[in-house]
Amino acid sequence: MTAHAGRGRPMLVAGGAWDTARRGLPVTVTALVILGAWQLVVRLFDVPSFILPAPTDIASALVDQLTTILSASRLTVSAVLLGLVSGSVAGILVALVVSRFHRISGPVLGVAVIVNCAPIVALAPIFNNWFGVTSLASKAGVAGVMVFFPVLVNTARGLLQVAPLHLELMESLAARPRQISLMLRLPNALPYLFNALKLGSTLAVIGVIVTEYFGGPSNALGVYIAQQASLPRFAEAWAGILVASLLGLAMFGVMSLLERLLMPWHESVHGGEA
């Protein structure tokens, strides 16, 4: 049923624009249908705002509160970025080291997979205690730990799971270990890494906002949402949620964009069906 969607994509230049439009259409239509139905249901049945404010109410609350929300977002964004960067850098470094020593890589990754099953958000109050409730480090720390494990596991897997054929080819060319790493293992690990980064970008947002929930500077996004919801000013709370969602989406989008730029050869980029 997907035969003509996946196969034989036209390679014409004009095809690209047409394709984008055709792909974008169902997405936009779905959004409009959902938003319209939401607005209609809220207005028709007079749904009280504690259940769901109308999209227009949320939009006007967003406009009213824009400066407050944006200043709150700035702190949250910097914590998310700091956590994402530190967690993934640490994960990549450890993966590089671990993949060098085949004897320990299996068990170490096994332990990492198991630790990754633990709800790491539970560290939030401990980190708040260690690094200070109002400090950036406690928020970024939780996000960093949450990002670290998937990045470590995926990157190491990508470094290790090289096609035997490719490995034999490199060996037949008498490539040095460093060359094998650079020319074969690293490129092979990139798709694995980006999968982890995409997952990590949303995890980092969750980690920071949960940690803020355990206490944070009054002008952080997570604190703002919780306060507005308890006041109760629901349209404002939803405006905060909207911004938080956009933040998560933007992180995800940046990662996807990076993936496209760094791996133009990969099938996920030109949407081929495997």
């Binding site: 949303t202 947002v205 906002i209 919801a229 629901f234 949620i241 969602s245 998560g248 989406l249 995800f252």
Partner: peptide
Amino acid sequence: ASQTVPLVAIAPM
């Protein structure tokens, strides 16, 4: 997109 929505944000709701 629904998964990038920080669920904590929705949890109170």
